[in-house]
Design a protein around this nucleic acid. Structure first.
Lengths: 300, 300
DNA sequence: GCCCTACTTTTTATCCATAAAAAACAACTT
DNA sequence: AAGTTGTTTTTTATGGATAAAAAGTAGGGC
């Protein structure tokens, strides 16, 4: 059976909306709500029905108004709002990155299904999707081969990343002055400066900034294959550093400083300066990853 | 229910084997056969059982010998030896490349399932796998968006291909004299020369050679992401040119000639010469693809 | 002790069923 | 006529079942 996580998440979002509005206000139309929540009207109606049933809203002659104030207890628990496949993803990444999963292991769909409490179908779909990350490989009529989250992987990943990033940075610098991306870069620079000034308390925010920055560089000359590749990087980093927080503040501060130098180089439009700053930044990111990988494999 | 294509294909292969052997010869052990056919012993036993039932082989006191000569009719038809997912692949590619599937179309799993006569699950798995090719994109809880096999696609594809190929060619030329790959390249050169001399009758053989060549170049410094990307290229070209044979001979001859120049450049180890030959070859391949794409979209 | 065949258990490929969600259709209101 | 809500149809996400294929276990002969 399909999970009703879409409904529950929409329900919670609707509660947020109601909490923000003043009491007795009239609700927007179903269609309007549909657009705002990014779900179908079918789901909105289901939400509204439940809200009415719990008398959180009142319906009179087709006009819906807010009925009572919202309580924390009205919300569905977060766990019930994540869809199955995301669940599988989290479980799997934890199993792979934190468990004692050795390179060369064979992955068994059925066993994972039992372990994660889902049908084999979901596992299989996840693995197919995941296989693009170059960490596993299918053997037909048999299972999957886990190649390992190893130094070799990191090196291959960064070789490509370097090629792509140099290319995109070069093209970015060639943008005409009229391009709106320059303003975006300026804004990003400000965000970097602010974060640096407040690094002690907000160092977790760096990864979001990192993402924004590298995606902006790619925007100068979009290529779907480069974007896809960047998805891999985002994914890998997201999970890897989620469980590997060692020296996080220091790491992020270093990267932040490199970014600022990188941004300045872009503004200078001096290609050789850009290249060297870009290389330096990626070399350091690679170094960080490999370092943490080793610490990960052999915690001594 | 799982298809028994593995069994049927193994059965046919076994018939080939028996046809080659002389009558009354003793069969290899089950384990030996398993290794040769690349299937499990379970499947081999099933094959042997059927062969005995049809008295193609004779079993006496645990010793198996060839019982009678093979007839064309003993074989299972080819159609029954392709697994479902390959079936789906072929159907889909035909639907996409030959049908009037316009860029921007929405792909409906259920409809395709009906059209291809398979369960939705198989369609979905195929689409997930196929999505790495950058031609379709999933919208959660809804269908897939077909972005079109367009000129933009070809340009983006070739931009990456150019980067990768230049990188690999450069590294290839830096291989030490002692590397065995030089001998492989020599052999490939010979194969090219032979094909050129016989181009009139064998021009179809070029695509296999093309693949071998580009994969050899990549072998100099393996990177899984580059290999994966080359899979995309192989796949796309395979299907695209399967249905688009216009000027095939001429096209292949031109590419063949470029390859020969490319190989010579590699032997010279002159980096700037390599780069220019490589660029020329890929530019021409891109040109060919785009040309045929246009002819494809708008047959005037 | 290795290799062979017979038998058993586990896993994969594949179809089918069904609730949730989306999409399409219809009727109503201002 | 455009925008609203009510109703019906279609499609997706997910679990379950099962034959085919693989993997594992066991006993026997050299």
């Amino acid at each position: 059976m399909k999970t009703d996580t879409v409904y529950k998440k929409a329900f919670n979002r609707m509660l947020d909306l109601l909490a923000e509005s003043h009491l007795e206000a009239r609700l927007p139309s179903e269609n309007e709500l549909r657009g705002r929540m990014g779900v179908s009207r079918t789901t909105i109606r289901k939400v509204l029905k439940e809200l009415a049933e719990r008398s959180i809203i009142a319906e009179e002659e087709g006009v819906r108004t807010i009925g009572r104030s919202i309580d924390r207890k009205d919300y569905f628990p977060d766990a019930e709002t994540t869809p199955r496949n995301q669940h599988v993803e989290q479980h799997f990444m934890e199993w792979m990155l934190r468990g004692d999963t050795k390179p060369g292991t064979f992955i068994n769909e059925l066993e994972l299904a039992r372990q994660f409490g889902v049908a084999t179908n979901g596992i299989r779909e996840f693995l197919i999707r995941f296989s693009r990350f170059g960490l596993i490989e299918k053997r037909p009529n048999s299972g999957w081969h886990f190649k390992g989250f190893t130094e070799a992987f990191a090196l291959e990943l960064f070789e490509i990343r370097m090629m792509f990033e140099l290319r995109s940075a070069r093209l970015f610098a060639q943008l005409p002055d009229s391009s709106p991306l320059w303003a975006n870069l300026e804004a990003l620079k400000t965000a970097h400066d602010e974060l640096r000034d407040d690094i002690e308390s907000r160092f977790h925010d760096f990864s979001r900034l990192d993402n924004r920055f590298h995606r902006l560089i790619n925007e100068a000359s979009p290529n779907r294959f480069i974007d896809d590749f960047y998805d891999i990087i985002t994914f890998i980093f997201h999970y890897h550093y989620q469980w590997n927080k060692r020296d996080e503040k220091q790491r992020n501060l270093a990267a932040l400083t490199e970014h600022i130098a990188y941004i300045d180089a872009l503004f200078s439009r001096d290609q050789s300066r850009i290249e060297s700053v870009c290389r330096a930044h990626l070399a350091s990111a690679r170094q960080t990853l490999i370092q943490s990988l080793i610490g990960f494999e052999d915690p001594s």
